[in-house]
Design a binder for these strands. Structure first.
Length: 293
DNA sequence: TATCCGGCTTTTAAGAAGGT
DNA sequence: ACCTTCTTAAAAGCCGGATA
């Protein structure tokens, strides 16, 4: 395996960059000769020895893994990106083509089926006539319910299948999500994914007029936000304004939202502004709008 | 379907020897 | 000094088939 050979090479680079000798890294559990063979691709370390080796150069497994993946995201994030791009372009045909490709794979494993569902949800989101079987949704909910500690994948999965879930599933799993992502929350990428998914959840709940739960999850999101979360804060404020507007139906409130979006655009994030506008669109009531526009 | 088992392959440790 | 290569016996891992 070429890939695995590179594992040793990478390790060597990382070790030398730190000015460490083989003997500095070697320990009771890992000999110098073993490390040498590993670095030169002549042998592979067993999993436990690899832990020792990585610890020896003062890196975490996550950091090493990140370096090994060539500073790229994992495969499922690539799929996620691909789906998000197709979704943003509203490219239903593109999504259906992707679906075909994923469906054509034989001997599908659990994750193949779950990824399939994510693509289907995105199609369903754009084209409500595209149906998804009940048992597929049940498969999804029972998977999510079965995982005690949600990793980024489960968060990603939940965030990308919200529109398939019934209101009660949405709220139930949403509450579970808030509990179950705690274990891995010290990982920054995890935390970011969690906040984005929470934002998505809130938006879907607003769409479904489940205002009590919106307030509940808004509070949770607000608690988890820190000053670095500009994106999330932008969403948070948008949701609050949107909520006030929907409840009152006042044209003035709508103007406030539009002003807010204009401000976001002024700050230089026109893409986000566009996104907010698209999200606002379904809520603009004709009656609240004197000039049809 | 998961687990156990036997044979086959790979990796390991340690030190000695060789290379730069 | 530092790293690599070689050697050995032992340990561990892997794979497929049988079993429950």
């Amino acid at each position: 395996m070429q890939n695995l050979m590179e594992l040793g090479e990478l390790y060597k680079e990382l070790r030398m960059a730190r000015g460490l000798k083989l003997k500095d890294v070697a320990s009771d559990n890992l000999s110098i000769s073993q490390l040498s063979k590993f670095e030169n691709g002549q042998s592979m370390l067993s999993a436990d020895k690899l832990f020792v080796a990585i610890e020896g150069i003062n890196m975490t497994l996550m950091e090493f893994g990140h370096a090994f993946n060539n500073y790229e995201d994992r495969a499922f994030f690539k799929l996620g990106d691909q789906i998000a791009q197709l979704h943003a372009r509203q490219d239903i045909e593109g999504l259906k083509r992707l679906l075909k490709v994923l469906e054509s794979k034989e001997d599908k494993k659990v994750y193949d089926n779950l990824n399939l569902l994510i693509v289907k949800e995105n199609i369903h989101f754009l084209d409500r006539s595209f149906e998804i079987k009940k048992e597929e949704v049940e498969f999804l909910t029972s998977y999510l319910y079965g995982i005690d500690e949600w990793t980024e994948y489960e968060i990603f999965l939940f965030g990308n299948t919200l529109s398939l879930l019934s209101n009660s599933d949405l709220v139930f799993l949403g509450k579970e999500f808030v509990k179950r992502d705690k274990f891995y929350r010290s990982i920054p990428t995890h935390q970011t994914a969690a906040k984005l998914t929470l934002s998505n959840l809130i938006f879907v709940l607003i769409e479904r007029r489940e205002f009590d739960y919106v307030t509940y999850f808004l509070d949770i999101l607000e608690d988890s936000v820190d000053y670095e979360d500009m994106l999330i804060i932008t969403f948070l404020n948008f949701f609050k304004l949107l909520l006030t507007y929907i409840k009152s139906g006042q044209f003035e409130e709508l103007l406030q939202i539009k002003e807010y979006i204009a401000m976001v655009r002024k700050l230089g994030n026109s893409q986000l502004a566009q996104h907010l506008e698209a999200n606002l669109e379904p809520f603009i009531q004709v009656s609240a709008c004197p000039r049809s526009n």
